[in-house]
Computed example of a mutant assay.
Amino acid sequence: MNWEQVISKKVQDIPPSGIRKFFDLVSEVDDVISLGVGEPDHVTPWHVREAAYYSLEKGHTMYTSNYGLLELREEINKYLESSFGVDYNPDDQILVTVGVSEAVDLALRTLLEEGDELLLPEPSYVSYQPAAQLTGADVVKVPTKQENNFKLDPKELEKAITSQSKVLILCYPNNPTGAVMSEDELKEIAALVKKHDLFVLADEIYAELTYDDSYTSFASLDGMKERTVLLNGFSKAYAMTGWRIGYAAAPEPIINAMMKIHQYTMLCAPIVSQNAALEALRNGNQEKDKMVKSYKQRRNVIVKGLNEIGLDCFKPKGAFYVFPSIKSTGLSSEEFAQRLLQEEGVVVIPGNVFGESGEGFIRCSYASSLENIYEALNRMERFIEQL
């Protein structure tokens, strides 16, 4: 069988995830401490799990509306309005999805086609580029820089814009860098979005994990709500990664188009997860705030520790990642991460898997215990001294 003729060329051209590829190496090493996984180390709060149990006991095991439970969509709108000052019609402007990952795929397939360009600030989350490639669109990368704390520079963005540019992805707080953009900085981007008639995919899954300043949702800026698909979910703030529950909010024509794809592929998000998400929104703030407080403490520890051992690292204002430079070691990102794993049993992610702008850096997640962070720092210091 000639599999190259059987399998779609678009799929063949997509490389496997650099993160998954790297984790294949972990099984070969004993006594591993992982700073690699972008997942809370907290368990989903008990009252959220209990809500799921009760929903099963009540026999809630059926399909929901393609859009998701109306009660959940109403609660999502209340949350967006009270937290970020932006409101949507729950009937036709909010779509509940199977995680934010599905929402990214639906939005890009709705907005892009052959010949369009997606503007992608780098370093970036690994799923954006492959999802865009599957639409046939071209991906135009916009580098962000360490000296600017990896924020999107309006001048760099405008240089990348062409007549084919259609969609801009914004992910702040950022994965992998932890960068956050202020309201004034986002307004500069909004001016370019309006000037060049762009549409924005705003992935705000880490919005609740903002530590030093208030968070500004891009859709809340003047004139941006009608130009934005706002994505958010429950994985990070409520420690609900495995529940696979997210949502998109956008103008009705966009949500309706996304729903058409959703109804033929996923149909609806699992009802048990939707009921759990409803409980999280209504009663989850106390546990969420405790988790955020613990992440901030860990951030301060890991940033201080990395700088002390000679890895230049700015203090991120959001998410649960740091993105230190390893250029002083003379190793590439891949070499550093592989040797650190093999020689000291510490898992970090090579920065280059997040795009060319990530070369010379590594991503470390501090969604791990303080004990593990201290031990990982000790091992990293020993590794660097031996180079």
Rank of each mutant, 00 (worst) to 15 (best):
P143Q: 05
S165N: 06
L112D: 04
P143H: 06
N175F: 13
L120D: 01
Q146I: 11
E147W: 12
K159Q: 10
R109M: 07
Q146Y: 14
L120H: 10
K166G: 10
E102P: 00
Q133F: 00
Y125G: 10
L118N: 00
K166Y: 04
N149A: 11
T162I: 04
E156R: 09
T162W: 00
L119C: 09
S127D: 14
E114W: 05
L168Y: 09
A103N: 03
N175E: 15
D138K: 15
T135F: 08
Y128H: 13
E117N: 10
N149W: 06
D138R: 15
S124K: 08
T135Y: 11
G115E: 05
D138C: 02
E102N: 10
V104C: 07
Q164K: 15
D116W: 01
K145I: 10
I169T: 12
L112F: 09
N149Y: 11
S165R: 08
A131F: 03
D116M: 07
K155N: 13
P154I: 02
K155F: 09
K151G: 08
C171F: 14
L170H: 05
P123S: 05
Q129A: 15
K159I: 04
N149T: 06
E117I: 07
N174T: 03
E114P: 02
I169W: 00
N175G: 01
D153V: 06
V140P: 00
T162E: 11
C171D: 12
Q146A: 14
E147G: 04
V139Y: 08
K141A: 06
D153G: 10
E114D: 14
T135E: 11
T110Y: 02
